[in-house]
């Protein structure tokens, strides 16, 4: 199993990533040296109790925040050495984002929102239209293309958000609690689609979640505790149900916010 992964190309390689907050005298280290390698086509879930540094890790890897120390390579580029303008361009061209609260621009229609990342004119209109049709069909949102965010449901909003994350054909998609605001039916539908996209189009996905059900859709789950990697689980050939049970076990040992609810 490991063999099949190493034979693939590494998309993201984080080495000894550290992140501290606060000023002198009151420094809090949230990430304490993370080493992580994500291969092309992987669907990685990041789990851990509140305060473990999940979102911080995602932000740092996704170039939204800067690491205090360590190196991060995405597709061979060392993002920790890039300037702000370079990072912006990098995010626009190589990364996709899905947020918990969708972050759609309420002044734009679903289609306009989706086309935003390729709106600076580098992609020709014909090509953009083709990509849009392609993705909208996969995500099942062709009907709502000309509706405004306030006219569609949460699930549809998150699908729109996902479509926006995929339109620029990113090397990697980062998702921060994408199902956090959805009911379980919409959540599993979305996750199913994400897994589908991951498998069929080979899109690499990294998803932060505290929900064991959500992470059971991933091909690998990384557990964080106190800013360090605690353990990892690979799904391999297991059914999703079996993988879910494995995740629950680790989570039980780890202790965390969602343990009591199950």
């Amino acid at each position: 199993m490991n063999k099949t992964h190493t034979s693939q190309q590494t998309v993201l390689h984080a080495q000894n990533v550290r992140k501290s907050f606060g000023t002198r005298g009151n420094v809090q280290e949230v990430l304490k040296g993370i080493d992580l390698r994500v291969n092309e086509g992987e669907f990685v879930g990041i789990m851990g109790p509140s305060g473990a540094g999940k979102t911080t890790l995602l932000n740092v890897l996704a170039t939204i925040d800067r690491a205090t120390d360590g190196a991060i390579l995405i597709g061979g580029d060392d993002i920790s050495k890039m300037k702000d303008a370079g990072l912006s361009a990098f995010r626009r061209d190589k990364l996709g984002f899905i947020f918990q609260d969708y972050n759609l621009l309420d002044t734009l229609t679903a289609k306009e929102n989706i086309l935003l990342p390729i709106s600076l004119g580098k992609v020709k209109k014909k090509e953009a239209e083709a990509r849009f049709n392609d993705i909208a069909t996969i995500l099942g949102i062709t009907d709502i293309a000309h509706k405004y965010p306030h006219e569609i449901s949460g699930g549809q909003k998150q699908r729109t958000s996902a479509a926006r994350a995929l339109i620029n054909e990113p090397s990697m998609v980062f998702a921060d609690e994408p199902t956090g605001a959805l009911d379980s039916k919409s959540a599993s539908s979305l996750l199913g689609t994400m897994a589908d996209v991951n498998k069929k189009r080979g899109v690499t996905i990294m998803m932060v979640t505290h929900d064991a059900v959500a992470s059971s859709y991933a091909s690998r789950v990384v557990f964080l505790k106190d800013g360090q990697i605690y353990s990892e689980l690979y799904r391999g050939d297991k059914t999703r149900q079996a993988f879910f049970q494995d995740i629950l076990k680790v989570q039980g040992v780890l202790g965390g916010d969602s343990v009591d609810t199950i």
Partner: peptide, 15 residues
Amino acid sequence: QNYATLRQLGFTVKD
């Protein structure tokens, strides 16, 4: 919030 989103999507302040 819109500006935050746009910047996360990779648009610079200048854009």
